[in-house]
Computed example of a mutant assay.
Amino acid sequence: MRVARKNGYLSYFLHCDQPKTTKWSIIIDWKVRLISIGGKIERKVRESTFASNSNYTGCGWDDFIKWEDMKKNFMTDGNITIETHVKIEKMTGIERKKLRNFDSEMNVFSDVILTVKNENFYVSKLFLAAQSTYFEALLSKKHEKSEKPKYELDGCKSEDFQYFLELIYGESPIDDETIDKIVHLADKYKAPTAIRKCEEFLMNNSGKSLKEKLRMAKSYKLENLKMSCLSRIKNVADIRSVLSYNVNEMDPSVVAALLQKAVTYLP
């Protein structure tokens, strides 16, 4: 992201640093919100395409808002808060390398098949049951047929399930791009070891904002992550950075902790 003053306006651009050594394209829907401490919002929404055959690496607005209007209505103590939400609608030419295979080549080593969006995953019942109480309950059911049992899983994408399996099988697929998908499935399938590894990544290695981490801590009941985030809030600017426009969306215990911190920072 690039934020700058240009010709009397606040300019805002989103850049893609994907190398142009191969042919690829990414289509995104994205929205940007400039938020004041009092809750006022200036927003922009657009669809953009990044591609290897383009001469441009960024897209955005030269005239997001007049500089003086921004200073008057959105700047506090020389700081502003801008949120950017990006949804990838389509991506071609970029494929993440699988860290472990669960395809038909693993058939001889597996005793159950899990199907997600028409893709088969050949896995071990005993190992999966030991990692997930959801699968322990599912796979302990008696199967009348003599052939290898097969179960179809709903509510997730095959690539996300691949990441989840890689994690519980001892690989390291977690990064800031995959963490949301993996922790969602770890919570969905009640896999405590996977949840712990996700929480440790968010606490120690993630570049996500404190606000985003606190949102995830609330969604997935990650108490250690919540306490870690609160311990990193050291001043009024930090408090402002984690506040949501709608406070009702926040964890009540976090709101209380922030109010206590705010009182101590008063002059």
Rank of each mutant, 00 (worst) to 15 (best):
E166L: 09
T193L: 02
Y122C: 11
S231I: 06
Y56E: 12
W61N: 03
L259I: 13
S209E: 06
K72P: 05
A130E: 07
K141E: 05
K90Y: 08
S146E: 03
D77H: 13
W67M: 08
I182F: 04
A217S: 14
Y56S: 11
K44R: 15
D17P: 00
E200I: 06
F74L: 07
F201M: 03
E166W: 05
A191I: 02
Y9E: 02
S132K: 01
K208L: 14
I88V: 15
L202F: 04
I168W: 01
V32T: 08
I233E: 07
G93N: 02
K181W: 08
L167T: 05
H85K: 12
F74V: 07
R33Q: 15
K213V: 08
K221G: 00
V242F: 03
K23V: 15
A217D: 08
A262T: 04
K141W: 00
T81Y: 14
K31V: 10
L126K: 13
N79M: 12
T264V: 13
E105H: 08
K90V: 01
S206T: 07
A257W: 00
V255T: 14
N73K: 07
N73V: 03
R2N: 13
N107R: 15
R232T: 08
Y189S: 03
D63H: 09
T178A: 11
P173T: 02
K213T: 08
F201Q: 01
I28C: 11
K72I: 12
S231E: 13
S158W: 06
N53P: 01
V247K: 10
I80P: 00
S124W: 01
K66M: 15
Y245E: 10
